Computed example of a mutant assay.
Amino acid sequence: MEFNESSSKDAVSPASDQADNRHHTDDRPRVGCGVITVSDTRTRADDRSGAEIERLLLEAGHRVVDRRIVPDASEQLRQAVLTASADPRIDAVLITGGTGIAPRDQTPEVLEPLLEVQLPGFGELFRAVSFAAIGPAAMLSRAVAGRRGRTVVFAMPGSTNAVRTAVEQLILPVLTHAVAQAQQN
């Protein structure tokens, strides 16, 4: 799988929109991102969660190098993450779907062995923020994050509301700083 940059996805908003991270002088103002939707049923035409991630990233001034859909099959997701993390244009991979408890939901099981460093705080905070919005059903999420090589990886549930919560409240405020930390020599 090759990740191809699309010129239509290069829209940029001012880096000052990343106000929470202005004090990190080594942070890159634009992060190259891969977006992966894990689903057996979604197509590009009805992938609202992947489209929402892309929209939020672009509005924040980041680049979406590639956006793809892979089935709820562990080997396809594994290969997509390996390919994305090996692509020097991709600094962060945002994954939506496969984090529930259904038998086909395998995203955490696929990601955890690939991650050299795990960020348990992402899943903990996601569930805490989600609990305030949806109540006890938040405990059914197995959102995970970490670092593979020099690439940060975030996996969140497949619902558009969950994606919006995770990206707006948790990922965007720290994305440039997390990438800068992951890419330190």
Rank of each mutant, 00 (worst) to 15 (best):
P71Q: 12
R127T: 09
G100N: 15
H24D: 06
N185T: 10
S85I: 01
R89Q: 14
R127W: 11
G149Q: 04
G149A: 06
A137D: 12
R164E: 08
T96S: 02
Q18P: 07
V163L: 02
D72C: 08
R148C: 08
R148Y: 06
V153E: 05
V117R: 13
G100W: 11
L57V: 02
L119W: 13
P173S: 13
S8Y: 14
A137Q: 13
V81R: 10
I134F: 02
S8A: 12
D87A: 08
A132Q: 15
V65K: 01
R22W: 13
S74Q: 11
Q169S: 14
H62C: 02
E52P: 00
Q169E: 14
V179W: 01
E2V: 11
R48P: 01
T41H: 12
S8E: 13
A145Y: 00
H23K: 13
E5H: 11
M156H: 09
L175Y: 03
L172C: 03
R148P: 08
Q118T: 14
V117L: 13
A132K: 11
N161I: 02
V153D: 06
P71N: 10
L119R: 09
P136S: 15
S13V: 14
A19S: 15
M1D: 03
E109G: 13
Q118W: 07
L56N: 02
A137R: 15
M156F: 12
G32P: 08
P88E: 15
F154I: 14
F126C: 10
D17L: 13
N185C: 09
A138I: 11
E54S: 12
P173W: 04
C33K: 00
A86L: 13
L140K: 10
T83N: 13
I101P: 08
L77H: 06
R42S: 06
Q184N: 05
S74F: 15
T151S: 07
T37H: 01
E54G: 07
G149E: 07
Q106N: 15
H23T: 15
V179N: 02
L170M: 10
Q181D: 03
D26W: 07
E116W: 08
S13W: 14
P157V: 05
R42Y: 06
R48A: 11
K9E: 04
A155K: 06
V129I: 10
D26Q: 11
S16M: 15
H177C: 00
A162G: 14
V129S: 09
L114V: 09
G123N: 12
D47Q: 02
V70F: 01
I53F: 01
R89L: 11
R67H: 07
L114P: 09
G32N: 14
G34W: 02
L170R: 02
A143W: 04
E2Y: 07
A84H: 06
L82S: 14
I95Q: 06
D20W: 09
R63T: 07
L125D: 09
S85K: 05
S141A: 12
P157T: 07
P157S: 08
G34P: 04
V81Y: 04
A15L: 10
V110S: 04
E75P: 05
